[in-house]
């Protein structure tokens, strides 16, 4: 929260103003040049690698390349292809549905699991930092490595999946995991347990930043630990939760893990789609369209995603009354 307000205020506190004499004006010009020169890499960087591509993607999405004949303006054709049920509409709906469900379920799920991890990692014991590191270890494993690993662990018994071997040895029925339309998205979300160490750390830092006297005062008033959680820990952590919901959902909407988990599926054009497209995510679809050199269609899909990201960010900010920033306001 401090961060955001600091960002809004920006820069150094203004120094006392001097009367503009030619000398000061020259000095100011030098100051300006110095500042701009230091910031020049990022000015060029955001223009060239962020804003220019965004504009170009927008233009792309309204055009079609006609080979040697050049580029044709096709208005909303790609969007219509994507959204109309006569064309790709059904698939698009499914893909965006998958992505939304994944982002909206996995992020809160991760935060909740992370919270319980943090409670455990907050025990006052010798060697607790070793446990914290062990809890965090799965988070630093690169996605390719963990993807390769989990797809094998979740495989059928015939494919020697360790979980199903465990289930059958315990006399339980086999689970289909990534092998069925119904269970693959749930399995992917469930995999998030292993990366909950990331949100554990966020919670730990939230706990740390809560003044201890709040708990002491609450205890004097006879509050139990559950009340402390509901009235102190959670309200005081809301800025962190909010930040992580926003970044997590933006990140989750661009998830590409199915590429590793599902693999080649039906072929190069629907890589990472999963059984019955049950794991097909927007970012993966964009890459597949790109591989077919349908850059314009890929750009239109990307903009639809951008639109959805925008809507969710807007909704999150609009409904952020529950975020507790200061002393004055209640929650």
């Amino acid at each position: 929260m401090e961060r955001k307000s600091a960002a809004a205020a920006g820069g150094q506190p203004a120094r006392e103003k001097t009367r503009p004499s030619p000398a000061t004006r020259r000095r100011r010009r030098i100051d300006w040049l110095t500042g701009v020169l230091f910031a020049l890499p990022v000015i060029i960087g955001i223009l060239l690698f962020n804003y220019y591509p965004t504009v170009r993607a927008l233009i792309n999405s309204f055009t079609a390349s006609r080979g040697r004949a050049g580029i044709e303006f096709v208005k909303f054709k790609h969007y219509i292809t994507a959204l109309s049920f006569e064309f790709e509409g059904k698939l698009t709906l499914q893909i965006f549905g998958n992505t939304l469900v994944y982002a909206l379920v996995s992020v809160p799920f991760g935060l909740i699991v992370g919270y319980f991890l943090a409670l455990a990692a907050n025990f006052k014991l010798k060697g607790i930092s070793v446990y914290r590191m062990l809890f965090y270890l799965p988070v630093i494993i690169p996605g390719v490595a963990s993807g390769i690993l989990f797809v094998r662990m979740f495989a059928d018994t015939t494919q020697h999946g360790i979980f199903n071997q465990l289930f059958t040895s315990l006399g339980l029925p086999e689970a289909s995991f990534f092998r069925s339309e119904k269970t693959s998205l749930i399995t992917l979300i469930f995999m998030g347990i292993w990366s909950a160490g990331g949100s554990m750390i966020i919670w730990l830092s939230a706990f740390k930043n809560i003044p201890a006297n709040l708990y002491e005062a609450a205890k004097l008033d006879g509050a139990n630990s559950l009340q402390c959680l509901a009235k102190i820990t959670i309200p005081m952590s809301t800025p962190l939760i909010f930040y992580n919901l926003v970044t997590g959902i933006i990140g989750g909407l661009q998830c590409t893990t199915p590429l590793v988990v599902v693999g080649n599926g039906g072929g190069a054009w629907d890589r990472g789609a999963g059984v019955g497209n049950s794991l097909y995510f927007v970012a993966v679809k964009i890459m597949n369209e790109f591989n077919l050199t349908f850059y314009e269609y890929a750009s239109a899909l990307a903009f639809l995603l951008f639109f959805i990201v925008g809507i969710f960010t807007f909704i999150l900010f609009k409904t952020s009354k529950w975020v507790f920033y200061g002393e004055e306001e209640g929650k």
Partner: peptide, 30 residues
């Protein structure tokens, strides 16, 4: 951004932070 004073600094800083809102896949193809 931290140590110099120049006109437009706040604007550039805000424009920089705004890029965080652009999903990576949007810029990937261009």
């Amino acid at each position: 951004f931290a140590r110099t004073r120049w006109k437009g600094k706040e604007f550039v800083f805000a424009a920089m932070l705004a890029t965080l809102m652009i999903p990576g896949v949007v810029t990937q193809v261009p």
